[in-house]
Structure formats: C-alpha cells, structure tokens
Design a binder for these strands. Structure first.
Lengths: 149, 149
DNA sequence: CATGAAAAGGCCTGAAG
DNA sequence: CTTCAGGCCTTTTCATG
C-alpha cells in the first residue's frame, strides 16, 4: 500500500468503470501494473465491492427518513432480533447500533409517508420491545459520499 | 422501464462487474440486448454512477460517529454556510438537513476519537452559530446497504 | 422499436524480458 | 515493472419480428 495504490483507490471510488489505461496515465504506471494492483486490492478486501449507484428519485423512492429507536429491553436476544429485522427490511438503507440516548439510528428511503407508516406498523408497533422512536424527515440530502479517502 | 430493467438494476447494484453475458442468463436476453439497456439506464440517469466501495477498516478509518447538530440562527445564509462546510470536510460522509429537533444529522468516519475532537474544534467551536450538538459513537454498523430496489 | 447473430474493436490477463 | 501476445468482453452493424 503505497501512494500509487492510494491514488488508484481515490479514482475508482468515484468511478469504477475507469479503464486501467486511463488510470495508468494519472498514476504513472503501465496498464498491466495497474490491473495487478487492482486485483490485489480486491483480494485483500481493501476494495470490498464494486456497485452501481441507482437514482432514488428516478425510481420513485426519493423520500429519506431518519429514525432514532430506543428499545424497552436491551438483552442480547432482543438486540439481535431487532438487528435481524432491520437487515431484512428493504426500505432500511442503514442501521447503526449506537451509544448515547438512542439505541439504534436508522436511515430509510421510501416512496411516500404512507410507506413509512406501514414500516412503523410492521416493525415498531407489532413488537412490544420498542420503547419509543423519533422520526426526522430529510429536507435536503446535503452530502452523501462514500469516499473513504 | 420494465421488469427486465428492474432485474438488471437489482443485479448491478450489488455487483457492477457482472458481465452482460452473466446478466443475460438471469434476465433471459442476449448479451447485446443487456448492454443496450445498461447504456440507456446510464444515459437516463437511473444508474447514477458505478463506484468501488472501500473497506474503512483496512484503511484505518473504522470509527463511525453520528452527530445531531442544532444551529443558533437558522437564516438562509447560516444554513448555506454550514452546508458548505460539511461538504468540504473530508470525514463527513453524509449530511442531512432535517425536520425535528435537530437541524442537521451527520455521519462521519474517523481514525480515532482524537480526529473527531479535531473536527469539532474546527467546525463547531470556532463558529458561534452552533447552539449544541449531540454525539453518538457507532458500536455496530448493522446494515449499510445502498440498495434502492 | 427492440431483439438477436455475427464481426470488429477494445480491454483485461497471462508470459517473457 | 514493462512489453507483447492471446483471449474475453463489449460494441457496433445489420437483418428480423
């Protein structure tokens, strides 16, 4: 992992379709050398995966909601059950288990507020283990980068 | 946008390196037909971009922090200034302007708590427009999907 | 108008220097 | 690491439903 690897990573984390040839010009290596480094970065897990980012708006899911959840009981079994539920729920994009007031922080994308209401009924009200939850509607997605470097 | 397009999108949002040939088997089209659909999906912006997801842990930035920020004054100028700052800050991965108690919700990744402290000093304490902020440290990143479909 | 088959071009992957 | 050759993927072209 030298400076050239970092440069390659900065490029592909913004555009995974760049050809090795294009990268080689920026980095100052031959195209095969770049490919070799990319292969190693994938194998070692530095590059976890390569994905297509879809437009939420064009797919009719342009509403983003943030939810703080506080559980009633924080036993291991209850925590795991809640985590499992969030992983399965399609509209949950991100779920964090946190310190502080809330136990969990969720970021969801939905078509409209009705879809969110349905989500809460299926995931918060049926199960009595939710103490309370606080909903915030996102007015502006100011920044949504995935850049690590 | 028919069912075949949706199937293609579901595949590439998980793995953008799939060949058109591999996709064609799942979708029931020829490889060129898949390529043409992919091209159109890119041109129309349904596929916004294709990126490499890097491992935060392997790059030494495995600490995730969530911050709720409440501003002192909510004038347009102050809002814009804060948004601009967040866009520039490298450790800010996501920034949302929200309804509810907090004005902004941030998700950052840092190397350690010292880096976060530095961030707060540079962005929260120097400027008097921050009323208060609440920090939560992420213990478990339960889910971090980007799947829209 | 979108699909499929075949050919041309470009890109990636190995070996040798 | 680079150069070069081989092979795969992609991208046209063109004919078809």
């Amino acid at each position: 992992m030298d400076e050239k690897d970092l440069k390659i990573l900065r490029l592909v984390q913004n555009d995974a379709r760049l050809t090795a040839d294009a990268i080689s010009l920026d980095v100052g290596l031959s195209a095969p050398a770049v490919q070799k480094r990319l292969k190693k970065l994938r194998e070692t897990g530095v590059i976890e995966r390569e994905i297509a980012v879809l437009s939420q708006g064009k797919l009719g899911r342009d509403m983003t909601i943030i939810v703080e959840v506080i559980l009633e009981r924080e036993s291991r079994a209850h925590l795991d059950a809640f985590k499992r539920k969030m992983r399965q729920a399609a509209c949950v994009q991100q779920c964090y288990y946190t310190t502080g007031e809330a136990d969990f922080m969720l970021i969801l994308t939905v078509k409209d507020i009705q879809e969110y209401e349905r989500f809460t009924e299926e995931n918060f009200f049926d199960e009595s283990n939710i103490s309370r939850f606080k909903t915030s509607v996102v007015m502006d997605r100011v920044k949504a980068s995935l850049d690590v470097l």
